[in-house]
Simulated assay, not measured.
Amino acid sequence: MGLPRKALISLEATPYYHCVSRCVRRAFLCGRDERTGQCFEHRRQWIEDKLLELSQIFALDVCAYAVMGNHYHVVLHVDGAQAAGWELREVVEHWHQLGKGSPLSNRFARNESLDAAELARLTELAEVWRIRLMDISWFMRYLNESIAREANREDQCTGRFWEGRFKSQALLDEKALAACLAYVDLNPVRAKMAETPEESAHTSIKTRIESAKEGRQPAMLFPFAGNPREPMPEGIPFPLQSYLELVDWSGRMLRDGKRGVIDGKLPPILERLQIDPQHWLYLTKNFESRFKSLVGAAHSVRRVCEQLGKRWVQGIRDCERYFSPPAAS
């Protein structure tokens, strides 16, 4: 039996999570159904637009995404500080972008006066909404339900469109985060849907590269903040240029099928993260399949297991091999 989602997400351990949703019943999220010849390519824009739209409503940031044929990947950053800092009116305004709210919240939004008891009830309800607005499960629910309704309407059918549960991996440290970001960004290259990262339509890496050409970072994506330092600005703890070089290098290795000799001109970020190049290429091809709910150095995984009351986590040996610091000589 799968564990409840709340048992797999610990904001005390990490704010970064990799989520994957897959279709059922031979359903197509995008691409072309070779059996019927029907093209669903336009659905890739649906998911990209809705994903970025919801990130502006929830206290969640999109770090990376890739829309594939019958599934999509997204790496999310939970911004608990942002949600905690919202005033009552801000919470109500954000929640009303998702639904109708309540009679009390609608009166409040229209600037109608509320007595003390009504304001207390609304404040209590808003605290529930505040928690939901920083909850990955609620984010994925609104994302998947909207796409399912549109797809079922287009397919003229009813029933389940997505698998019952989305997959979630907690990224516990910089190594796990970097490997997962690259794994997601390189999905189209690995699947031979694109020759290069910059040609990968409906992916975060394409958006980042296009913005980088103009000397900026995309406003809709969580920014790269550079190497860790004090004070550390909010953002992914790598320089953008270093990450782009890493993805480009990894994409060329994957595309050329180089399994033996590795190009001697290695991206400097691999040295900083202390990741063996051979291990890195393995991770960019097998990240999702080799690791389950918790990913990072073995000692971090064991610590979080204790916090969550888990006795064992699948993939701990691979965490020791690929993410744990090398033994001192």
Rank of each mutant, 00 (worst) to 15 (best):
E53K: 05
S137H: 12
H96G: 03
R110Q: 14
A7M: 14
A117E: 14
P4G: 03
W162V: 12
E150A: 11
I9Y: 06
G264E: 13
C63Q: 08
A117T: 10
R302V: 15
F139W: 10
E93W: 07
K258V: 12
I236Y: 07
D173M: 12
L114N: 09
E53W: 04
W95T: 09
G235V: 11
K206L: 05
G99F: 01
T196H: 10
S300R: 15
V91G: 02
E112I: 00
L177S: 13
D61H: 13
L98W: 04
H73P: 09
I147V: 11
L60Y: 03
N70P: 05
I47Q: 10
R160D: 10
V189C: 07
S329C: 03
I316F: 12
G296I: 00
G101P: 02
Y183A: 06
L254A: 03
V67G: 06
S204Q: 13
T36D: 10
R252S: 02
A194D: 09
M1G: 12
A194G: 12
P326W: 08
L88A: 09
P103Q: 07
R22M: 00
P4H: 08
R110T: 06
A178W: 04
L60R: 04
E127M: 02
V184C: 09
G257A: 03
W129V: 00
Y183L: 05
Y142D: 13
R5Y: 09
W138L: 06
G2D: 00
D173H: 14
S200H: 02
S242A: 11
A117V: 13
T36L: 05
P233R: 11
A59C: 12
C63V: 12
L172M: 08
F291Y: 13
E163M: 15
R229K: 15
D173N: 15
A84Q: 14
F287M: 14
L29I: 14
E53F: 02
C30H: 08
F108Q: 01
L54V: 01
G315V: 02
F139P: 06
A225G: 08
W129F: 06
K175H: 04
F108L: 10
Y65W: 12
A7G: 08
A297T: 04
S250K: 05
C180S: 15
D61A: 03
K192E: 05
T196R: 15
M253H: 13
W162T: 08
S102A: 06
K6Q: 12
E288L: 11
G215D: 05
E87I: 01
F323M: 01
H202F: 14
Q241D: 13
A179V: 12
K258A: 10
A298P: 09
E198P: 03
L266V: 08
Y183V: 08
A151F: 07
L114Q: 13
H73I: 09
L266N: 00
R190F: 05
R311L: 11
Y17A: 00
T203V: 04
A151E: 01
K213L: 13
K50G: 00
F238L: 14
Y282V: 06
S204M: 10
P239T: 15
Y183F: 15
C30I: 03
D185F: 01
Q82H: 00
Y72M: 01
G257V: 02
L281F: 00
G296A: 03
